[in-house]
């Protein structure tokens, strides 16, 4: 019985803390996305600036590791039985990726544009712990172009 109570507490704490952290993070993401709205990141390799106008080109990257709360992890493992869209992981990955992109843009400083952007995700720490800790890294990288 105590175990059950303990479990319910974990779920409740996970839900409350997780929701709070997520809301806070999204607010920060929205704010910074507005800040960097004039620095486009594109997947294209070619630009239509003449070569002599480009002052420098430099690799920029950003990454973020985000973990999932107990509540969402539990919901996801339930989802594993029935199949279908794992909704509880969606916001986790979305946040990780947008955070990585924002950090890349922060690194780009006063560049005009970031080209040939690539985004990758990987789970980390899963092999160390067979229980499948919901820990995820997103990395974004590209070439920042600064105009003369």
């Amino acid at each position: 019985m105590y175990n059950l109570l303990f479990f319910i507490t974990l779920i409740a704490v996970g839900y409350l803390a997780g929701t709070f952290a997520e809301r806070y993070h999204y607010r920060s993401i929205h704010l910074r996305e507005k800040m960097f709205i004039n620095l486009p990141a594109v997947t294209m390799k070619t630009v239509d600036y003449p070569d002599d106008k480009i002052k420098s080109a430099e690799l920029v990257y950003g990454s973020a590791v985000i973990s999932i709360d107990y509540f969402k992890r539990f919901t996801a493992s339930l989802r594993n039985i029935f199949g279908g869209t794992v909704k509880s992981y969606e916001s986790l990955i979305d946040r990780a990726r947008r955070e990585a992109l924002l950090r890349m843009k922060e690194m780009a400083g006063d560049s005009r544009m970031i080209v040939n952007v690539r985004i990758e995700t990987s789970t980390i720490g899963r092999n160390a712990n067979k229980k499948g800790v919901g820990c995820l890294e997103a990395i974004a990288y590209g070439t920042a172009l600064t105009l003369a």
């Binding site: 594109v42 997947t43 594993n80 990955i93 985004i119």
Partner: peptide, 22 residues
């Protein structure tokens, strides 16, 4: 344009499909 796919497994038994472009 310049669309790329990537697939990763985020949790045991769940796969993530990601696609991005300009």
């Amino acid at each position: 344009v310049n669309v790329r796919f990537s697939t990763s497994s985020v949790a045991q038994g769940a796969a993530e499909l990601y696609v991005y472009g300009t």
